[in-house]
Design a protein around this nucleic acid. Structure first.
Lengths: 125, 125
DNA sequence: TCATTAATTAATGTTTTTGTTAAATAATGA
DNA sequence: TCATTATTTAACAAAAACATTAATTAATGA
């Protein structure tokens, strides 16, 4: 039976949390810039231990930021671009809302001082 | 003396960290959607205490996500859109790198099997 | 088979984050 | 002045995050 593959609703706090650590952010940036890398290659530039990086990779994977595939004795990691798309989509949504609320404020101010929630009116109560 | 106001280089881990908590994310989304709000208005929808929200706001402010101004007995909070721009800029940079590395891979594959790092060659060693 | 390499899991300690309640600070307005 | 309202700070506890070293799992290849 074929199950329709739905893009899982991104857990945004988890997604942002995965990017909130400097080591993890550096890993993501390196994967984006250089493509697929083994765990060992990702460990190399850092001073922290391999187990520490291994756990960072687990965090990135469970947040959907990277995926891993097995290639003989290596685990190769790569970026999942839909994670980047999810972040970008969130930002755009916020910006759209933000612009809309600015527009509303503009209109209110343009309509003149009979509106109840302009700064002028607000000051009076 | 006038000091040139430079946009501070965003601390991306701090920025993502600020967005990594569900309460804080909800606050940011509300500010984006509804504009400036007092601390009390931001506290209202949540079940957690006012001091807890106050600290969340401090986290958001120190990461540059929001700013606060004093209006009589209230502190009004609003989004700093440049924080959103910083996130969006980072994502776009990563995507650009990612596309570039895809292009390199495409070219390598197109150039034929004499390249050393195609999957085919890689399998042999 | 067995030593080597690659990576993860286990056990553990420290630091950070997040929450609570109580107290402090500050502005309003009767 | 003084009670009220708005918000933050202090003191503290619980949970989560992040690191370490040691042990385990798994594949390679001599």
């Amino acid at each position: 039976m074929i199950v329709q593959q739905t893009a899982p609703t991104p857990d945004l706090p988890a997604l942002f949390g995965a990017l909130a650590d400097p080591h993890r952010l550096a890993i993501v940036e390196r994967l984006a810039a250089e493509g697929e890398k083994t765990v060992g290659e990702l460990v190399a530039p850092f001073e922290i231990s391999a187990p520490a990086i291994s756990r960072h990779l687990a965090v990135l994977e469970s947040a959907g930021v990277i995926e891993r595939r097995v290639d003989r004795q290596w685990r190769k990691c790569r970026i999942r671009p839909d994670a980047l798309a999810a972040v970008e989509g969130w930002v755009e949504t916020q910006r759209r809302f933000w612009n809309a609320s600015l527009d509303r404020l503009d209109r209110m101010l343009a309509e003149g001082p009979q509106a109840k929630t302009t700064d002028e009116e607000e000051k009076k109560r």
